[in-house]
């Protein structure tokens, strides 16, 4: 982030700390697009994603005094939004899917090895990828998002979601497997073009 953007961001944060509705709207509108995209990955549809985003932003504005300017502000907001998505997942009280860890670990490895035609995957529209992720079960998509998108390791996922490391691994493998399965018809169509 350049000096100018940082300067602008600090003014917005300061305005939000004073509960300026104008500053809050400016901040919300600036971050809305990217953060809704994160929420979409953790939800089944846009309505659920909008709910997560709204709940997350309520937390952001109510606790903005805690942001002391250390580190990226957007990163700080993003963490709150992801935590809100995780809370949402917990509230659903859906039991994490447990499968044969050894089997799914192998499956996951194979899947990564099998990805040879990178150019075909590059051609998949972003919307199709998002749709595929949304079709995953909540347990699979939460683990997949935390591991692949947020960079959590299995120990951290285990602690965050209250599941075993084995379950985290198997859910990740199964998520990859299902994602590929969902995308296969599209990949075949693209390959034929």
């Amino acid at each position: 982030m350049g000096m100018w953007q940082k300067h602008e961001e600090m003014q917005l944060v300061e305005g939000c700390k004073r509960e300026s509705r104008i500053a809050q709207k400016e901040l919300f509108s600036k971050l809305y697009g990217r953060l809704l995209s994160i929420c979409m990955r953790y939800s089944d549809d846009r309505d659920e994603a909008e709910d997560i985003l709204q709940n997350g932003f309520i937390k952001v504005f109510k606790s903005i005094d805690n942001y002391k300017g250390d580190g990226s502000f957007e990163g700080w907001v993003k963490r709150i939004i992801v935590n809100t998505a995780i809370d949402n997942y917990r509230r659903k009280k859906i039991r994490p899917v447990v499968t044969d860890t050894e089997l799914t670990d192998r499956m996951g490895d194979q899947l990564e090895d099998e990805l040879e035609d990178e150019s075909v995957y590059e051609k998949i529209p972003i919307s199709a990828v998002m749709e595929a992720v949304q079709k995953l079960s909540p347990a699979y998509k939460t683990v997949f998002n935390l591991y692949v998108l947020e960079g959590y390791n299995h120990n951290e996922i285990s602690e965050t979601l209250g599941i075993s490391v084995g379950t985290s691994k198997s859910n990740l493998s199964k998520a990859r497997f299902n994602l590929k399965k969902i995308l296969t018809p599209l990949i075949e169509r693209i390959s034929q073009e």
């Binding site: 509108s29 995209s37 990828v129």
Partner: peptide, 25 residues
């Protein structure tokens, strides 16, 4: 596979929705 999915998802951005702000406000 992970890299490609991550790259695609990370690049998605939605247009601002005024109604979302009004609801939050």
């Amino acid at each position: 596979f992970d890299d490609i999915i991550k790259e695609k998802l990370a690049s998605q951005e939605f247009a601002f929705n005024e109604n979302a702000w009004l609801r939050l406000e």
